[in-house]
Amino acid sequence: MTLRHVVSWQMAAEDPAVRAEHAAGIASRLAALVGVVPEIRALSTGANVAYPDANWDVSLVADFDDLAGLEAYQVHPAHQEVVAYVRSVVGNRSAVDFEV
């Protein structure tokens, strides 16, 4: 079993340039976790590039061996640093975890 973790965020800022900067900041910080958090099996992240009035600003798709791997990722100190930044710029969060 592989557990896929999918998260999308909407930025809190109103200004489109600031929203884009914050979204890019989240994506780059998340991408930097590859090779640092050993439980990550695959990770893809990026800022939205189409339909900014309808789409969320940035998303993450990450794969883990199982729920224990996801939970280890959640509490890893490097991930917690990213979480702190995310919480400082995000207005809304949506997530789903499913088996693939």
Rank of each mutant, 00 (worst) to 15 (best):
A32M: 04
R29Q: 13
S8V: 11
V89L: 08
R4S: 12
H5R: 01
A78C: 10
P16M: 06
D97N: 12
H76A: 01
S94H: 09
D66E: 03
L43A: 07
E71P: 00
Q74E: 13
Q10Y: 11
V58K: 01
L30E: 05
D65G: 14
M1G: 15
L3G: 02
G25S: 10
D15S: 09
L33R: 05
R4G: 02
T2Y: 00
E81C: 02
L33Q: 07
R29D: 07
R4H: 12
V58S: 03
R29W: 09
Y73M: 05
A27P: 06
A50P: 00
Q80G: 04
R19P: 06
L33N: 07
E21C: 02
P77T: 07
S59H: 10
S94K: 14
D15Q: 13
V7C: 00
V82M: 08
V86Q: 02
S28W: 01
H79A: 03
A24I: 01
A47Q: 12
A50D: 14
A24K: 13
L3T: 09
V89R: 05
A12V: 08
A20H: 10
V37T: 06
M11R: 00
V89W: 06
W56E: 07
L70A: 05
P77N: 09
V49E: 13
Q10D: 14
V34K: 13
R19K: 13
V86R: 04
G91Y: 08
N92E: 14
E21H: 14
H76I: 05
N55G: 03
G69K: 04
L70P: 04
P16C: 08
L43R: 05
E14A: 15
M1E: 13
P77W: 05
A23Y: 06
A68F: 05
A32N: 07
V37F: 00
A42L: 08
R41F: 06
H22F: 07
E81H: 02
L67A: 15
S88G: 10
A20P: 00
V7I: 12
V82C: 14
V34F: 11
W9I: 03
V90A: 15
G25Q: 06
P38W: 04
V36K: 13
V34R: 13
H79Q: 07
V37S: 02
A95H: 14
V100F: 09
H76F: 05
R19H: 04
